[in-house]
Design a protein around this nucleic acid. Structure first.
Lengths: 210, 210
DNA sequence: ATTATCTATAGATCTATAGATAATGC
DNA sequence: ATTATCTATAGATCTATAGATAATGC
């Protein structure tokens, strides 16, 4: 049924997958094309045959990842068919789950955008999408709820920054936070599960929503 | 009065300062010893004469920075002579100000600990200090306040993670957040000032403190 | 007769040191 | 007579390509 692929993965795909792992873990500067080729199980020359340069290969990966990250923010908070409290709870949880499932993604994007701010142009479209579509709609829902006395007034942008801040840090800084919590939790995953609920509560308490 | 220093900065100090900047901005893998030497205004050979290897120079910088970061957390929240609400407000603000004044520090530490988790041992002493001294004291204050009906009960560890999360993200991800906020604020510094107060409020509302 | 793969190596970049020379402190 | 500095270059590491060979699709 697929366009191709009776055989497992073709060389190009194997290189892409290995490159994704290497770049996300070590960043552009720390990644080695020879390491990528080896992990993909192909000779080093193949990497250059398919992608010409390290830069072009990197460009492929970071474009894909930035688009993904933009989409997930929009996707998590975009469902406006729910009552505000539910929309926020689900948004925080979905966002948290995505970050937990892609733990090196935020560090990767933050680092590479810092190193080359012009890379933001790749995200600009999704970022503009967030700013206008999501924030506009969310803000009017918050305002309406506050006007009815169902919750505290709040700035939708600030709320979004709150949520992203709270969700990213325990995943990005896992080794450090892990060493702080020590043996308080059974595992770091148990801590993360508790943290997800804690973040939902923090936001709902801020809105004082009923 | 000083031990030395009639002349501006000696070579060793110039190299250290240049190295700090280069490593914090580009990380270990992205930093170049030749770039450091050039920025310090000395020949490349001098760097190796004083510090032998890139690794040893890096070790000097990261040890200093990890200790600093540990100390600041302890320092910001350690003043237990204040009423709880004031202690938290001042702690959040002091911590925020320190991060804003050292914007590449969190990214640097998070990246280098991720790349080499064994580096956590450098921080272990300060980290243990935080876990026991700070959290223990803070927790009993929170408990006492809650018992008197002055605030909601809360877990001191979770509260600390909340604060650090909220304070770090807008500084670490400044280019990205800046592009999301667009022209809403006069400058990114204006946004950060607003953000500091917002973070204080978020925490106080979570505690529902009066 | 085009596409994919391999071996071998060039070429670029970076870290590190050798060895000579100048400056400094007894 | 020790410490600091410079020039020159070795040595290691990494990216990229040349050129030959094998596989694949008409």
């Amino acid at each position: 049924m697929d366009k191709e692929a009776p055989h497992a993965e073709d060389t190009e795909t194997k290189i892409l997958h290995a490159a994704e792992k290497e770049f996300l873990e070590k960043g552009y500067a720390g990644a080695r094309t020879a390491t990528i080729a080896e992990a993909a199980g192909v000779t080093h020359a193949m990497l250059h045959y398919y992608f010409r340069t390290k830069d072009k290969l990197f460009e492929r990966i970071i474009t894909e990842k930035m688009t993904l990250l933009g989409d997930i923010v929009l996707g998590a908070f975009g469902d406006s068919s729910l009552p505000l409290a539910e929309r926020i709870r689900q948004g925080v949880e979905q966002h948290f789950d995505f970050i937990a499932a892609n733990p090196s993604l935020p560090r990767f994007i933050i680092n590479e955008v810092y190193a080359h701010p012009e890379r933001l142009r790749i995200m600009e479209t999704s970022v503009q999408g967030i700013a206008s579509r999501l924030l506009g709609g969310l803000q009017s829902e918050i305002d309406e709820s506050a006007a009815r006395g169902l919750s505290r007034p709040a700035d939708a942008l600030m709320l979004l920054v709150d949520i992203i801040s709270l969700n990213l840090f325990p995943v990005m800084a896992a080794p450090i936070v892990g060493s702080i919590i020590g043996g308080t939790y059974e595992s770091y995953d148990a801590f993360l599960a508790a943290r997800k609920q804690e973040n939902v509560e923090t936001i709902l308490k801020k809105l004082n929503i009923h």
